[in-house]
Design a binder for these strands. Structure first.
Lengths: 341, 341
DNA sequence: TATTAGCACTCACACATATCGAGTGCTAAT
DNA sequence: ATTAGCACTCGATATGTGTGAGTGCTAATA
């Protein structure tokens, strides 16, 4: 069957209405709501068609219609197309400049949560792709070394390395020079076994201990530093009855607390390179099965120097996509401008 | 009125039963439950007395009785007294040795949550009271310094200091020596304005920039580094109907997400020095008003070197105090032994 | 005097029943 | 092609009715 212009309008009206009320929408409502000047009976016929086509469904026999995932998808795609032209300057409270990146990201999550009334998450950038800027070993206590690793974007990682044998200051100095001359400027992915054996050789393997330390530093560099994810407004899910029955709420809360589950989403978003910056997952499209009753809108922020991360907004399928996308765009713009100074 | 031995037994029976079932307890139940061999009528009389004394209450006229906060308090105090003697060796899965403190604490929270079926929180130690062990400044990039501050217990803090003017390596070396000779071994609280001006003088105020850097380091040291709090098992609150209506659940979830609210609890617990290690807050006794419908059991862990933190377990007022206390004690013991190696 | 049997009473809760109204699909008229 | 009209469906809401666990009180009992 063909999706006529009229059907499109009716579908859109149904969705708009449902987004607002959360109640199934009846034919009479649409008959008045739109400027089509059609009777409810006609609408009913069209609705029957739309149902057959899979864009809407009836929760039970004598109820109105609600949008199906496919219906939402159609709607969202159309909206995104609109938005591309639009350079909407939404008034959103400004993010404060924060000295620390993590405060900034936490604040971002909070701002979006209060603004949109949905649950939000923001991932911190990981230094995997970043270039090493600086490495420093220092003695702390008799049998421990502190390794400080700084990557571009001033992402810092500390690691305490236990050592078996005392190392004198001179050797530490040598090691520092060795490490920095070889590794600076490389991205973490580029540091492989070859590099490491090469360094060991150059250190002159006069003592095992030096080799051990080099290994330890390499390990520290590669160590999966667990992706930080900040969440906010989890409690917002209680504002939407369709998400807040005990079963569902419990699952969602758990997902938000066990942040590593959200990692999937973050990776998924970052992986998709060719996107315009904003992605929408509706219901089952979500990479996180616990969120199959939700919609998720994500965006990738880029603060330069390889500092990329993900912002996500999670709400009911009938979320106000329009508002969410606007908010995300505005926040991205703000993040961008904060970085540029 | 006097709290006779018999009344005490009846009260205890009521509480025990209510802890299990969560339902108001009737006189007939108690008549059989205990070995007192009293008829339900007698029990009823005693119950009327207990109610007058404020230890139990009736949710509505024709219902059984439930314990009041005062009743719980009596019960818990008696139990704690018991426990003091008891060296209970509960079988609780072992914590793994983790290289990183934060993983260990996260794991602790999780273990306790799955074991007890309540929500848990664990605070990381703060370095306020700890002695400085080591400070290091390094240049990263043209106009930025990296300050690494290590305190006893290997608590590490990084701070990027922006500087106006280039500093040469020689001066950085001098600064490092100056900072370390003066500050090492002091606790953060001991570093005051006097110290700082003293250092500035000794540095010879030949250049403003040195003074600025010293100030920045001092600021970095004192900077409130926000108390990390790890939570787990928040979803457990849904297992207790008295906590999981939307209103209450939403509040609790928010409290657990906005971790700084939990800070109050942590401070409260740490402040109380003279305790045996475990504290119980029942209902309104809680320092967090959002948790007035809950009970909270807290303990202070001490990994030595001033690394103290708080563990908390939050559940309904009818929580299994016995089990919770046992679990906490066992976990403390395990933490202790992990540290000692 | 302390305990208990007995009885009238209360009240939440479960269940059945009736009513209402928003919504539908279908048919026949326009 | 559109629409008025009508019978029908079904969730939601209100209403009535029993049921049972529980109570307090009184009078009998040990």
């Amino acid at each position: 069957m063909e999706l006529s212009e009229r059907k499109r309008k009716i579908l859109q009206a149904i969705i708009r209405n449902y987004l607002e009320t959360g109640e199934p929408v009846g034919s009479r409502t649409i008959s008045k709501y739109t400027d089509l000047n059609l009777s409810s009976a006609t609408i009913r016929n069209e609705m029957a068609d739309l149902e057959e086509m899979g864009y809407i469904l009836q929760p039970h026999t004598s109820a109105g219609r609600i949008p199906s995932d496919a219906g939402y998808r159609l709607y969202v795609d159309a909206m995104m197309l609109e938005k591309q032209k639009e350079v909407d300057d939404l008034k959103v409270e400004l993010l404060d400049k924060e000295e620390k990146l993590d405060s900034l990201l936490k604040q971002t999550a909070k701002l979006l949560a209060t603004n949109t009334n949905y649950a939000t998450l923001v991932s911190s950038p990981t230094l995997h792709r970043n270039k090493l800027k600086f490495i420093q070993l220092s003695k702390v206590g008799g049998n421990q070394l502190l390794a400080v690793i700084v990557a571009e974007g001033n992402l810092i990682k500390n690691s305490i390395l236990p050592i078996d044998e005392e190392i004198d200051d001179e050797n530490i100095l040598k090691l520092n020079i060795l490490l920095n001359t070889h590794l600076n400027g490389l991205s973490i992915e580029e540091i492989n076994l070859g590099m490491i054996t090469m360094m060991k050789q150059q250190a002159g393997i006069h003592s095992d201990i030096i080799g051990d330390v080099i290994d330890a530093v390499a390990a520290a560099i590669h160590e999966e530093d667990d992706l930080e994810i900040y969440t906010s407004g989890t409690n917002n899910i209680f504002k939407y009855p369709e998400l807040s029955d005990n079963q569902r709420a419990s699952e969602l809360i758990t997902t938000f607390e066990e942040k590593q589950l959200l990692g999937k989403l973050v990776q998924d978003t970052l992986a998709d390179e060719n996107n315009t910056g904003i992605q929408v997952y509706i219901g089952n499209e979500s990479p996180i099965s616990e969120m199959n009753d939700c919609s998720i809108v994500t965006a990738t922020y880029d603060l330069g120097d390889g500092m990329k991360g993900t912002i996500g907004i999670v709400g009911p399928k009938r979320m106000d996509y329009d508002k969410v996308v606007d908010n995300l765009k505005t926040v991205m713009k703000q993040l961008d401008s904060i970085y540029k100074q």
